[in-house]
Design a protein around this nucleic acid. Structure first.
Lengths: 213, 213
DNA sequence: CGACTAGAGTACCGAACGGTACGGTACGGC
DNA sequence: GCCGTACCGTACCGTTCGGTACTCTAGTCG
């Protein structure tokens, strides 16, 4: 039953507006900034409607995650006729997009929320977070890497392992530090440079010696 | 005033026992599992004592972080007369220790707590977490890397950058996924292998061509 | 022995919040 | 005109929890 709510991202426009409002509140005040009463006041709706639409508070949070996840673009990977320079450029784009997403206000707030709840309740929100958000990005990267391997730009054995290494080179410890709220860590103006550096290191590790670039 | 409490890790043995008990409760039930009444009951002390010792709930949390941080061994880096094999071995030990620490129950619970609070309250706990826990590990790694560079085992320009890359190679996205409670991510039996792989990749990126190993 | 202190145990208060119930209102179909 | 539906606004309830006050016990020191 809640599965239906979660799996279906066809929310009413009205409901989507409420969810956006909820995200805004969450970004503003953290988990305790998001109360049903507060949301009802901010979104000009009634608490009863919230409970009717989303079941309970957990359902609301799940809906927020699903709604937000439906907004991140998957990123088109046009892997046809891709020379070395293009492949490198696609990887760099992916890295940059990943950093942008992880550093976003809403992403940080939702991740904080899911992590805060991860200890109790069998981490239902955490699973949702991973499946809805992370898997999509992962799929995009995997496809890209596979294409690069097929065309001989990179070589590797384990697809999962190489992806995780790539991720590590891009994100490092940035994500956790941003989640912890460390000041001066979010520097979007450096993301381009960081992305290029990560890709350069990635090619050192997995690139073939074809003078692709 | 709270500064005094935070900066001073000389807690009474009794107080340390209470803090340990609090950590246990936190590990067991997440943030909501740790209430002052519950702690008083579990630790056989009175709420009033808790408030007298730690000020308020935030002070208690800060004390817990400080107390836990004081328990992680910094790791002796005996960098004297270190040949290539030893250096590599030290790096692998560091990587393994890092994975062990991050995957620990108490570490995960405290990080979840700090991250959950990071949005509000100017992320005081987050800062504490970084300064108390992260910086120590960072310092150990930095010293190790510097020693390795001085002896010609590795080469690099920016100390910070190379450390962060090393961290990324070791941890990848494991930490966040563990924080999210993803099932099947914590595999301590694989940490040794992962550490060696990370170090191998690290040497590909930053190692000199001296046949050290 | 008597005064003092630390601390356990408990009772209590007030605020916040999740969740429910109810009255009022606009709208669309019959 | 009438009914059903959806929904807003608000009042309300029960619980939880942080924080405070008070009492009683045990140990210490003069």
């Amino acid at each position: 039953m809640d599965q239906a709510v979660i799996a279906d991202e066809q929310f009413t426009p009205r409901q989507q507006a409420v969810l956006d409002c909820a995200l805004q509140l969450l970004v503003g005040g953290g988990e305790k900034g998001l109360t049903t009463a507060g949301l009802a006041r901010a979104a000009n709706c009634s608490k009863e409607s919230i409970y009717k639409w989303f079941g309970d508070r957990d359902g609301l949070l799940a809906a927020m995650i699903a709604h937000q996840a439906s907004k991140v673009r998957a990123g088109a990977d046009n892997a046809h006729a891709m020379d070395g320079g293009q492949f490198r450029s696609y990887l760099t784009d992916f890295a940059h997009d990943l950093l942008d997403v992880l550093a976003g206000d809403v992403s940080l707030a939702l991740n904080r929320l899911a992590i805060g709840q991860a200890s109790r309740s069998e981490s239902r929100l955490g699973r949702l977070m991973v499946e809805r958000g992370r898997r999509r990005i992962e799929a995009r990267a995997m496809a890209l890497l596979e294409a690069g391997k097929r065309r001989g730009h990179i070589r590797y054995q384990d697809r999962e392992a190489v992806y995780h290494t790539f991720y590590g080179l891009i994100v490092r410890d940035l994500h956790v530090r941003m989640l912890l709220g460390e000041a001066g860590v979010r520097r979007p103006e450096q993301f381009a440079e960081m992305a290029e550096e990560a890709v350069a290191q990635f090619f050192v590790l997995f690139g073939t010696d074809t003078p692709a670039d």
